[in-house]
């Protein structure tokens, strides 16, 4: 991709067919990736739904879920979607690198906050006997919710890398392009979370 500053990236008469330069294509590629990831999630959701009753005498949703904590997690994640959006806008309007980084760090902290609460919830569940080894239902739960958590973890790592890269080379085209994809990914995870909240927690609570 382009060099350290976008001004040196293109020799005067490079041919028009140069590949993987086109931001449009790169972003599109990421959409296609997310589509595939969505199928992945979709299939795991389907498994969860079929296993809602399969508690095998073990604890079910009503014993295990803590909606207070879940509400907090939802708020953290939704807010982080907002802040990542603000970061994207700062980037677009060429505002100072400092304010961009500020919003990214806020997003990162919100993401980490979400993960902390989620892990806390899991440990609470385990304390009540809600471990994946207990039943098919709990296996399905722990197949799906931590999968989202793993994605968030990955997003946080990505964010860290972005912060380092911005500090290293500034806001080059390549860095921007990467951040745009990260932002998309982050919104995507938000959507998945809404699915998890409605289907896994709420649906589980109603039908479980």
């Amino acid at each position: 991709m382009s060099g350290n500053s976008s001004s040196i990236s293109k020799p005067p008469s490079v041919d028009p067919g140069a590949i993987h330069k086109d931001p449009d294509m790169v972003i599109f590629g990421f959409w296609v990736f997310m589509m595939s990831d969505l199928i992945f999630f979709g299939v795991v959701f389907a498994i969860y739904i079929t296993m809602i009753g399969a508690t095998a005498g073990g604890p079910g949703p009503r014993e295990l879920f803590d909606f207070g904590s879940l509400f907090a997690q939802t708020m953290l994640l939704l807010t982080s979607s907002l802040t990542v959006g603000i970061a994207t806008i700062t980037m677009k309007h060429q505002r100072s690198q400092g304010s961009f980084l500020f919003w990214v760090v806020i997003t990162l902290l919100l993401g980490l906050g979400f993960l902390t609460l989620e892990l806390y919830d899991f440990s609470e569940m385990a304390a009540k006997g809600g471990v994946p080894q207990r039943s098919g239902y709990l296996s399905a739960f722990f197949g799906l919710v931590p999968l989202h958590g793993l994605h968030v973890t990955f997003g946080c790592l990505w964010m860290l890398v972005m912060i380092v890269q911005v500090l290293m080379v500034g806001m080059t085209d390549l860095v921007k392009l990467r951040f745009l994809r990260l932002a998309l990914f982050w919104h995507f995870l938000d959507l998945i979370w809404i699915g998890i909240f409605s289907v896994v927690y709420f649906g589980g609570w109603v039908y479980g």
């Binding site: 498994i47 399969a54 039943s135 709990l138 296996s139």
Partner: peptide, 10 residues
């Protein structure tokens, strides 16, 4: 886990 086992709701 018990996704596909014979017992415990798989």
């Amino acid at each position: 886990f018990h996704f596909f086992t014979n017992d415990l709701g798989g």
